[in-house]
Design a binder for these strands. Structure first.
Lengths: 140, 140, 140, 140
DNA sequence: GTGGTCTAGACCACC
DNA sequence: GTGGTCTAGACCACC
């Protein structure tokens, strides 16, 4: 598993790790059951403190992304959660969307341009899910 | 000028103020040259700390949105920046979009659902601005 | 808010704090909107490290029990979550129930005795919920 | 003797083994004097570490469930302890019950739902033991 | 080896 | 004042 830290990224280190693990799951680079590197190993490779990695892993566990068990290696969870309700989705993504729209406006983007940027990012998504006609790869 | 705080919004207060000022410019409620309320007044109206409002105004100034001069009232700047290039837009928004898409994926949202969430957030912005055929309100 | 640590309790300190906050919500001693003591204050009062309290608060936040926002005091969340599904409930409580049954057996308790012990603990519950005829105080 | 590990069970492996041995005694599948498989054999069959099985057997011994003597096979102990008093039971199980009830409350479960979850876990235990009129399988 | 908890202390961001 | 992140290092429990 390849994790890289971006000095220019304003987000805290643990957040970058969390995001990258999620993106790798989404891309299919990490599959359910796959092992993550031990915290000490990843900390060493990234040149950061062990606790920083533990914080990242802990959040991934709390979000149901990975399984952590004492004495065993961290693994990508089997269970993918059920589709979220509209309310849950708004709670989880509302801040992201407001930020995105705000920034896009400042850049002078049109609604169409923003939607097509979103489309190009959705295109990267490796969805091979149970309901192929309603997944995120779907052509609009 | 009407600013309201949303308790459910997880973003820091200063950021909510920044976003709302931007959105009001976008809606045309705030025009170049318009005055913003004095820091003390807005802080009092929202029941928040002076520093918080000062922080918000400072960021708006740093982003070229308002003019701040000691002893003068804050005003909306004249200069609007030119629409960004595709490359600039990708640089500025790419991280936000990656984050948004991977979160949406883990929530089990479809591409359609994500696009319509984006639409509803663009709708709040309700642009009726200078370039009507390429603005963010545009029906898709 | 009164939190006490029990030396004899084998659970980690942060767990005891988490449990006690939950129990106080359940008893109605803590209401939505109520403030929790600042981490430094509670840490001082309990004679433990600040980070240990932060760990407890962080878990309460991750479970949606409290709201934590930078610069503001921790508060009990407004939103009570929707009733869990059978699967969620089994996931969340299965381990507790297995442990309980195992221990009860070792003690020579009958099923009836265990159920009535559960009843007496449910009696402490301060439920004032929307569906009074299906809440946890309900006589069986 | 059949022991199986449940990946979804969040408890440590040694605890799953301890619980299952207890349940099998309860079901009558294991009788006083019966031999348990050698540590090496069980570890091999489950694909786990020797230490893990040793730890489980050690705890069973500490709880008076099995007899362990160097060079001999582990056996189910003869002595069954007398039923606990109400006070003992409350001391031993009170913490578990408080925890269970407050978790259930936060999940939005009703008292009935919690009792029936308890029933289903008691059902797994499936007691057909020495005191049929007060055992844990008893229909309520 | 591997994750979990706790202490100690620094520095930062928001209010 | 108040919570958030990070480093450093100790010791523990499980495998």
């Amino acid at each position: 598993m390849l994790i890289t830290l971006d000095e220019r990224d304003a987000r805290p280190i643990y957040q970058q790790i969390v995001s990258q693990v999620k993106e790798q799951i989404q891309r299919g680079d990490l599959q359910p059951g796959d092992e993550l590197p031990p915290v000490r190993e990843l900390a060493g490779a990234l040149g950061i403190n062990l606790h920083t990695v533990r914080g990242a892993y802990g959040r991934l566990r709390d979000q149901g992304i990975i399984d952590l068990r004492l004495g065993r290696r961290a693994r990508i969870s089997q269970a993918r959660r059920a589709p979220a309700s509209v309310v849950e989705a708004e709670t989880a993504l509302g801040g992201h969307l407001r930020e995105l729209v705000s920034e896009a406006f400042l850049l002078g983007l049109s609604a169409n341009e923003l939607h097509s940027m979103l489309d190009s990012h959705l295109g990267n998504v490796n969805v091979g899910a149970s309901t192929p006609d309603s997944n995120m790869k779907e052509k609009r």
